[in-house]
């Protein structure tokens, strides 16, 4: 110790990388590794086939779980000059991002450059609308988050005239529910693949695909809300579908293709 106390840095921002996401990905990685470990026991060309099979299947699985917790179903970002904080007239140049997930939103604020006025401007704030986003917004106000973040979060409160929350909450909730259903279908499909007749596995893969698509449809209803203006400084932005959404689409298509192939294969045999 040397009579010197260590420095305890307190975490300023609530969100860096979702611990949950990390866990999920780790679990699946461990699964993959352990499954791949049995590969050497398989002979010949089937080894390749099995490797392919294991990886594809686990990929789909991890995607289905992860998509629930990602915050990039829809995104909007812009670089703008924005008032930064209260009790100051400082205007910063920053990238403001809105990241919509199924359970809530993440709002990011990253200064360009990161350090301005001797302050590190790098915020990533999570607002979940699971219970009442009203409370979370109030907390955010009390914590005194930077203006752009509050500005965006406020759009998702119940009292906001935008009424975004009404649509987003249900879209997200149903998208997540159907996604979990898709996950169940995926589990079933995997069980069915190990049965004598794999036709049903094919159907189940198609069901998985269908539920992924339902989930996307459900999520995309957020675009039905009358456009709500997000205007910070002189610029404004619009949310657009993002990685997770397209990843869902890709996974859905992958599942559909596998399903169709299996079914077709079954009928041709």
């Amino acid at each position: 110790y040397d009579d010197i106390y260590p420095f305890y840095p307190s975490q300023r921002t609530s969100f860096i990388f979702s611990g949950r996401l990390l866990t999920i990905i780790l679990v699946f990685l461990v699964l993959t590794v352990s499954l791949l470990l049995i590969l050497p026991g398989i002979r010949g060309r089937t080894r390749l086939f099995w490797m392919f099979r294991i990886i594809t299947s686990l990929f789909i699985g991890v995607v289905l779980v992860v998509l629930n917790y990602t915050n990039s179903w829809a995104e909007a970002r812009m670089t703008t000059n924005a008032t930064y904080k209260s009790f100051s007239n400082a205007v910063i140049n920053a990238e403001v991002g809105l990241h919509v997930g199924l359970y809530g939103i993440n709002v990011t604020l990253r200064g360009t450059p990161m350090v301005q006025f001797n302050e590190t401007i790098n915020y990533n704030e999570m607002f979940s609308w699971h219970d009442t986003i009203e409370e979370e917004y109030k907390e955010a106000l009390e914590r005194g988050l930077p203006n752009p973040i509050l500005y965006i979060a406020e759009k998702f409160t119940l009292s906001s005239p935008c009424g975004l929350i009404f649509q987003y909450r249900y879209s997200g909730r149903f998208a997540s529910a159907t996604l979990w259903t898709a996950f169940c279908c995926w589990v079933l499909a995997n069980i069915l693949f190990s049965m004598p007749v794999i036709l049903y596995a094919g159907y189940m893969m198609m069901a998985t695909a269908a539920f992924i698509f339902f989930s996307m449809v459900s999520f995309s209803t957020i675009m039905n809300v009358p456009r709500c203006v997000f205007s910070i400084g002189t610029d404004s932005f619009v949310t657009e579908f993002s990685h997770s959404f397209w990843l869902a689409l890709a996974t859905g298509v992958l599942c559909a293709i596998i399903g169709i192939l299996v079914v077709a294969f079954n009928f041709l045999m």
Binding site: N81, T83, S88, V91, L141
Partner: peptide, 30 residues
């Protein structure tokens, strides 16, 4: 291209928060 000094004063919030130095909640909505 407009510089950061465009608006030179602190723009008040619409919801009254952070107006009061003593207590940021004073006079705010709610």
């Amino acid at each position: 291209q407009h510089s950061g000094s465009e608006i030179t004063w602190e723009v008040p919030r619409f919801d009254g928060w952070y107006n009061s130095l003593g207590n940021p909640r004073r006079g705010a909505v709610g």
